[in-house]
């Protein structure tokens, strides 16, 4: 980025916020860039192909199925988007979701005896899940910032730890929610508001909140500044460690929210819960146009990326033109093609 484009006025007595804004906007003004719309184009193409292959694809019911099942990965991706923009990574989200799900079920089952109303038990369980997620996230952030350990290593470690603890708690089997609680909790996944399933509403709310936080607040600008140049951000008096700590905490809460929506679906957690979610979430973020190197990213792109990934497997399930053995190959091709569509200009 050519430093000569920095406005001269910025050098005199900068406040942290203005300095940071200078860092993140010190690049050619954005004109219409077709590559920005790569994920949207990819998604529209997939929708057309899906409808052509099977008319049932375009039904409201199927659309809602796909959006509902995207909600988990989508919500995690939004948190992941912040972490990646700040230049970090979290590999543990799938295992974290599994452990939160398992712990949450155990806590609710234990509370059921002493707390009378199942709704109250579920509310406590939800609170517990969010706190646990936030706590795990902050622990990551603490190890990364204070402990000075690479995020890749910290979260690779916890990836193993979280899943192992869940497997141990479950004795290798499944942890299942009691029936009464299942009935009380079920509507959180299966319920509708104005014909749209609850998880889709939550996904929407988290997306909007994420977009506002990233683009309209000082915190969002700091996250982008740190990702684009950590040293410059530090010199600009941004509390880098605190901001990083918070991005991991935020991601942890997102995993907590996703888990809160996931548990009522099957009412159980097992060692296969959340398997490979980390890769799906990271793929959604990158396919959506966020730079893997950090510095800039888009919430809307991330949402589209997440939807796109689940549409691919939905189409494959709705047709049988391609051998089931090749499903993963088709997904791989689409991911690479969309990434190509949204590639950056050199």
């Amino acid at each position: 980025m050519p430093s000569g484009q920095m406005p001269a006025g910025q050098t005199s007595a900068p406040t942290p916020a203005t300095e940071v804004r200078a860092v993140s906007t010190a690049k050619p003004a954005r004109r219409f860039d077709p590559h920005r719309f790569g994920p949207v184009v990819g998604l529209i193409l997939l929708l057309v192909i899906g409808t052509a292959l099977n008319p049932d694809f375009a039904t409201w019911g199927n659309l809602m199925n796909v959006l509902t099942r995207t909600a988990f990965i989508g919500i995690i991706s939004i948190g992941m988007c912040f972490v990646i923009i700040s230049g970090g990574i979290d590999l543990s989200v799938g295992s974290m979701a599994a452990l939160i799900a398992g712990s949450m079920i155990l806590v609710m089952n234990a509370l059921a005896a002493s707390v009378g109303s199942p709704v109250a038990v579920v509310a406590l369980g939800v609170l517990f899940a969010l706190l646990l997620g936030g706590g795990f996230g902050l622990a990551h952030g603490y190890l990364i910032t204070r402990g000075r350990i690479e995020p890749f290593i910290v979260t690779l470690g916890t990836l193993g730890i979280f899943r192992a603890v869940l497997t141990w708690l479950a004795d290798g089997g499944a942890i299942t929610l009691d029936n009464d609680l299942s009935d009380a909790y079920g509507p959180v996944y299966y319920g509708n508001l104005l014909g749209i399933p609850i998880p889709v509403w939550v996904f929407l709310a988290v997306s909007v909140a994420g977009a506002v936080l990233l683009n309209r607040t000082a915190f969002g600008r700091y996250v982008q500044a740190i990702g684009s140049n950590e040293q410059v951000a530090r010199f600009a008096a941004v509390d880098v460690d605190r901001v990083k700590l918070l991005t991991y905490g935020l991601l942890g809460v997102c995993v907590g929210i996703a888990t809160v929506l996931y548990v009522p679906r099957l009412g159980s957690a097992s060692p296969t819960t959340g398997l490979l979610w980390e890769l799906e979430a990271i793929a959604a973020v990158i396919v959506g146009g966020t730079s893997f190197k950090g510095g800039e990213g888009r919430i809307a792109g991330t949402v589209i990326g997440a939807v796109l990934l689940s549409v691919i497997s939905n189409i494959l399930n709705l047709t049988s033109i391609i051998s089931v053995y090749l499903n993963a190959a088709v997904q791989g091709c689409v991911i690479i093609a969309v990434a190509f569509l949204q590639r950056r200009r050199p």
Partner: peptide, 14 residues
């Protein structure tokens, strides 16, 4: 379980 849920949803649509 999770994959079975998704595949079945799509079978039921189809």
């Amino acid at each position: 379980r999770d994959d079975a849920f998704k595949v079945t949803q799509d079978f039921l649509t189809r």
